[in-house]
Write a protein that binds this DNA or RNA. Structure first.
Lengths: 347, 347
DNA sequence: GTGAAAGCGCTAACAT
DNA sequence: ATGTTAGCGCTTTCAC
C-alpha cells in the first residue's frame, strides 16, 4: 500500500517521482547498457553518447540505484567497521583515516558500535554480512570462536586493529596493531626509571586495557614491585570518572606517587583532580597517559604518554583492504605499527 | 573471474560457500516464500514449519541477503546520518542515542562525515540516496539550495538537527534543534551579569559557532559593549588550539576578563593555559564552555557552560523518523529542545 | 498456513 | 562503440 502513494506536498516538481536507468536510456535515445557504461566506465563510450546520457541524467534528476547494482554485481563497494564506541576519541582518528583511504579507493564506510558487548558485535556482523559488505574492519582480536568461524565461512576480507594476536588467538585474516602488553610494560618502565615505586593504574574494564595492566604489572614485578593498585572502570570510562577513582586509590594506598591512566582524557581528569587538591604534578604524584591525543599536548603540565599512531593504523587497514579487493594477493597481512613512550612534564 | 574463485585456505568447512534462501527451502522441505515468511513474519507460519526452517538456517549457516531484500521491497531499513566529524564529542552522544533508537525500531545507522564541506555533504547524500536509505539525519540547517531540492525530489524523510531554521532557510522536512543565536546571547548575559565587560570568544569557523558568536555579540552590544574579541579556528578545533588562541586575544586586548569557548574541550584547554600562567580562574579570567560534556564536570574549576541535551536530540530525531516510516502522519515535525546555562565555578 | 509466478533495477557475459 | 539476453536473491501479489 505504499509503493505508489506519494507523501504530502505534491507540487509540480520538475521530476516525476523517481527515474530508472531505462528512463534515462529512452530520453538519451540509447540502450540501457550504454547508460550503465556511461556511468561506470565513461571511457568505453563515445563522447557524443556520453554527453547525451549525462544530459538525460541531469534532466531527469536520475540517481542510480546502488542496491540493484550491488545485487547484480555482487559488490557493494561498502566496507564496514566496528568500534566499541565512537565516543572514545582514540578510535575516531583511526576511523577518519580509514574512511578517507577507502573513499579514495571508491569505497564507503559503514560504521557500527559494539558497545564493548560481544553479542552486539555478532549482531552487527550478521547484518553487515547480510548487506554483503566487501570488507570488514574490527577492533581488537578477542572475537568469539563463533564469530571467527562465521567470518571465515563468509570469506570476506577482514582486518583486525588495535592489538596483536594474543595467544591462543590467531588473526582472522589481516591485522594492523601493536602490543598492548608491551605498551603497558613500557609505561611501567618509564615510571620506574624515574624512581617511582608505588604505582597505580586507572583504565576501562576492557580487553586492551587489561592487557596493558598485565604488562604494567609484569614490568613492576620484574623490579620487585608487586603491589600495583588498579581501578577498572566499566566502559565507557569518562573523564569525570578519573577524580573519584584516584581518590579510591589514595584511600587504599596514600603513598602512591605515580598513576598510569589508560587514555589521555582520563589522565587529564587526574590532572584536574590534582589541581583541585593543590597537589603539584609530578611533585606529589606523576601522571602518565595513553594515546597521545591533542589533550596530552594541551594539558598543564604537558602529559607524558604512550603514543599510538592512530591515523596510520586506519590508513594501513584501508590499504590492506583495498589491495585485497583489487585482487592483489601478496603484500603484508600482519603489521605491527608499534608505539612510543613520549616523556613530557607530567612524570 | 572472481565470482567462483575461493580465497586461500579451503579446508573442509561445514558450509559449501554461501547458501541462498532456496537452499534453506529445499533443506527444510518447504517453499521459498515460506522461508521468507519464517524470517520476516514468524507469526504467519506454523510452529512446526518455523522450527524446520530455523533448523535449516542453522545447519546451512544461512545469512539473508539484505541487498536482494531491499531491492525487492524498496525498503532498506537503513537510515543515514551526516555529521561534520565524529572526532567532535558533542556529536557522538547524539549519534549514539540516534543509533540506539533506530536499532530498537529495526533500523540501522549509516554514518557519513562531511568534514564541514558542503561538497562532501552533497556527495554523501548522493550515495545515500543511491542506496535508497529510508531516512536521513543532517547536522545544521545550512544545506545548499541544490541539496534541498534534491532531497525534496527524492521524497525521503529528513531530520535536521542542532539548529533551528535561521531565515531565510526553511526546514527541509522535520527538525529537532535549538537556537544557537539565543544560546550565544545567554552565554553573554551570564558573563555580563557577573560583571564582566571585556569579553572574548573562541570557536570554530563554522555555521553554528558563528551564530553563537552573533548572539554573543548582540547581547553584549545591547549592554553597550561593542568590542568582543573573537578567534575563529578553522575546523577541526582541537583542545590544543585553545591556549595559543587565548594568547592571541590577550596580546590584542590584555584587559579581557571573560572568554566564551564554543565547546567544553576548548574551554578545558583555556583552563590548562591559565594553570600554566598561574592565573586564577575566575579571579583573573572567567571561562565559559558549551555543551556540558563530561569534562565540564571534571575540570578544575568546574566549568560553567551551556547545557545541550544531546542524547535527547538524537532520540527525538530517531523517534520522528520511526513515526514517519511507520506511516504516522501527525506528530511534531519541528522541535525546539532548548538549552540551559549551567553556572559552576569557572565564572 | 502455504505456494507459484512475476518482477525490483541493475550488471555480466556474449554478441554485433 | 553499442545492443541483447539472462540473471543477482529476494518480496510481493494472488491463488489455493
Amino acid at each position: 500500500m505504499n509503493r505508489k502513494s506519494n507523501r504530502s506536498g505534491d507540487a509540480a516538481s520538475p521530476a516525476p517521482g523517481r527515474a530508472r536507468m531505462s528512463d534515462v536510456a529512452a530520453t538519451a535515445g540509447v540502450s540501457l547498457v550504454t547508460v550503465s557504461r556511461a556511468i561506470n566506465e565513461p571511457d568505453k563510450v563515445s563522447p557524443d553518447t556520453l554527453a547525451a546520457v549525462r544530459a538525460a541524467i541531469e534532466q531527469l534528476g536520475y540517481v542510480p540505484n546502488l542496491t540493484a547494482g550491488s545485487l547484480a554485481s555482487s559488490r557493494s563497494r561498502i566496507v564496514a567497521a566496528i568500534v566499541p564506541t565512537i565516543s572514545n576519541l582514540v578510535f575516531s582518528e583511526t576511523i577518519e583515516a580509514l574512511a578517507q583511504t577507502l573513499a579514495d579507493g571508491g569505497y564507503q564506510l559503514l560504521l557500527g558500535q559494539s558497545g564493548y558487548r560481544a553479542g552486539d558485535e555478532m549482531a552487527l556482523v550478521d547484518t553487515f554480512l547480510g548487506r554483503r559488505v566487501d570488507g570488514l574492519v574490527l577492533t581488537g582480536n578477542a572475537q568469539t570462536p563463533a564469530l571467527r568461524a562465521k567470518l571465515k565461512r563468509a570469506g570476506v576480507p577482514v582486518v583486525q586493529t588495535w592489538d596483536l594476536p594474543t595467544p591462543p588467538n590467531q588473526p582472522i585474516d589481516m591485522l594492523v596493531g601493536f602490543s598492548n602488553l608491551d605498551a603497558g610494560r613500557a609505561a611501567a618502565e618509564h615510571l620506574l626509571d624515574r624512581g617511582h615505586r608505588a604505582l597505580a593504574f586507572i583504565g576501562a574494564e576492557e580487553d586492551r586495557s587489561r592487557l596493558r595492566l598485565e604488562g604494567f604489572r609484569a614490568a613492576a614485578a620484574a623490579r620487585g614491585i608487586d603491589d600495583v593498585q588498579a581501578e577498572l572502570i566499566r566502559p565507557p570510562a569518562l573523564i569525570d570518572d578519573a577524580g573519584p577513582r584516584l581518590a579510591q586509590i589514595l584511600a587504599r594506598r596514600p603513598e602512591v606517587t605515580a598513576v598510569f591512566c589508560n587514555n589521555d582524557l582520563l589522565a587529564a581528569g587526574v590532572l584536574f583532580e590534582c589541581t583541585q587538591r593543590g597537589w603539584p604534578v609530578p611533585g606529589r604524584i606523576a601522571v602518565m597517559g595513553f594515546g597521545d591525543l591533542a589533550v596530552a599536548r594541551a594539558a598543564s603540565p604537558r602529559l607524558s604518554t604512550v603514543q599510538i599512531r592512530r591515523a596510520e593504523m586506519g590508513e594501513r587497514a584501508g590499504q590492506m583492504l583495498l589491495a585485497r579487493l583489487s585482487g592483489e594477493t601478496d603484500g603484508p597481512t600482519l603489521i605491527d605499527i608499534g608505539f612510543e613512550v613520549v616523556a613530557r612534564a607530567s612524570t
